[in-house]
Design a protein around this nucleic acid. Structure first.
Length: 414
RNA sequence: CGGGGUGUGGCGCAGUUGGCUAGCGCGCGUCGUUUGGGACGAUGAGGUCGGAGGUUCGAGUCCUCUCACCCCGACCA
């Protein structure tokens, strides 16, 4: 991609209203644009990162036999009344009358919808267990949208729903999904851990939240560094500085952002909506369910919160919008032509290249490259026949041939 | 939803106790000189001051209402 053609420019300044690091950097670098409070547009660069996050999540969900589908955002009131959540969620759910005078709402989550659909698809124990998921936009009328991508009113979420005949099977899958989540964060380059939390209005049982330590976090986690025990402060029985209930070490408090949440729902939704299966004896039973969510924008924002420096974003290998940022610092036509050729060669080798061939001062190219945060910067100039390969994270520089660059990238992005 | 704050060219801001053609920086266009960490000079385009109503000879400046946005809190599958 030639940078001169990119839809999305960098900016020096961003509204003083945009206080969160993730929104500030992502806006300055041209990844996102705010539309309303808690509602962001993704520009081409932002969408590339978004897709990378999305694909990692999709691969891991497919790997645990999740089947992707897509459900609607627009919902009839009647369905949500069956579970009592039309009134229960009135504060946070966008509810309105459509042109026909029917009351409808925008889905905040899809337990009702998926359970309704499952009634048609799940009849027998032979149909279970079953796992379906979607990556879809949710709407929540947060009283106070804030922290950029971390808490939106419209945001994309991966939500998976599982259906089971018994508790053991649900528990088993719950742990499978738990581990899949840890894998997702690890692949994305986030240091995340799971904590026990309350089920809220979703479930009476303990749920698990997946936390990433960052100052921007809204949650406080009590954790033990030694044995990895952790609980959300909301439900923790021990306080900061007290002994870990598991190993006796002192626990500490950390600000964390919740980057995912999994719930065992039991029969709450199946009983309310009449989702039953017939067992071997021919008896009808309520289906047990679980639900498992990850907000994609929130994960993307969390990566920025967790990985940036004074110069800008530092994407992780899995989230970098391009593999390499090629900077043309040529003063002569000859060198410039050489840079064009290198762009072509890298592309032919299969690398996603952002090519800064803009006719602007070199200083701005450096500044922009750091702000954008693509993992590797490659410099072509009159100074050197060889290429200069610079790591965005630590600005370590090395001279390299095109072959070396190819090797290096293969190793980094393997 | 309670408390606090902010709305002025595309972006960031200034605008004294109401007063004349509403300024500055960035960005943008043109010309030229430049180029290893956000270049410089010249020149040009661009706003009716969030919206509505009111007070006044006169309102970006005062009053009322309203909308939007931000921060703290409460809330948060």
């Amino acid at each position: 991609m030639k940078q001169s053609k990119l839809f999305g420019k960098t900016r020096k300044e961003v509204s003083k209203d945009e206080k969160s690091i993730n929104a500030e950097l992502l806006t300055k670098a041209g990844y996102i644009e705010k539309h309303m409070a808690g509602v962001y547009n993704y520009l081409p660069l932002g969408l590339r990162v978004f897709r990378k996050v999305e694909n990692v999540i999709r691969e891991e969900m497919d790997a645990i036999d999740g089947q992707e589908m897509l459900m609607t955002a627009l919902q009839p009131k009647e369905l949500w009344q069956k579970t009592g959540r039309w009134d229960e969620m009135a504060d946070i759910m966008y509810q309105f009358k459509d042109g026909h005078g029917s009351e409808v709402g925008l889905a905040t989550t899809h337990e009702e919808v998926v359970t309704e659909i499952a009634r048609q698809q799940i009849n027998s124990y032979k149909d279970l267990p079953m796992f379906v998921y979607q990556i879809q936009d949710k709407f929540r009328n947060e009283k106070r949208a804030k922290s950029g991508l971390l808490r939106g009113r419209e945001f994309s979420m991966k939500d998976l729903y599982s259906f089971h005949t018994n508790q053991e099977d649900l528990d088993k899958f719950y742990m499978v999904c738990h581990d899949a989540y840890l894998k997702i964060y690890k692949r994305l380059g986030l240091e995340a851990f799971s904590v026990e939390a309350s089920g809220g209005s979703m479930s009476k049982e303990f749920s698990h939240e997946f936390m990433v330590i960052t100052e921007a976090g809204e949650d406080i986690t009590i954790l033990c560094k030694k044995c990895a025990w952790a609980q959300n402060k909301e439900i923790a029985q021990v306080k900061n500085g007290e002994k870990c209930p598991k190993c006796g070490e002192k626990v500490i408090e950390e600000k964390t952002v919740e980057a995912g949440n999994i719930f065992r729902l039991g029969t709450k939704y199946s009983s309310a909506l009449g989702l039953q299966y017939t067992d071997k004896e021919g008896k009808k039973n309520d289906v047990l369910m679980g639900s498992y969510g990850i907000g994609l924008g929130r994960v993307m924002g969390t990566v920025v919160e967790a990985s940036h420096d004074k110069d800008g974003i530092v994407w992780t290998a899995a989230t970098s919008p391009y593999h390499i940022h090629l900077l043309n610092l040529a003063k002569t036509d000859k060198t410039s032509k050489r840079a064009d050729e290198i762009y072509q060669k890298l592309t032919d080798l299969g690398w996603d290249v952002l090519y800064d061939e803009r006719d602007i001062s070199f200083g701005k190219k450096f500044k922009d490259a750091d702000l954008l945060g693509i993992c590797w910067q490659l410099i072509v100039s009159d100074k050197n026949e060889d290429l200069e390969l610079v790591a965005r994270a630590d600005h370590k520089k090395e001279m390299a041939s095109l072959d070396n660059v190819d090797k290096k990238l293969k190793e980094f992005y393997k």
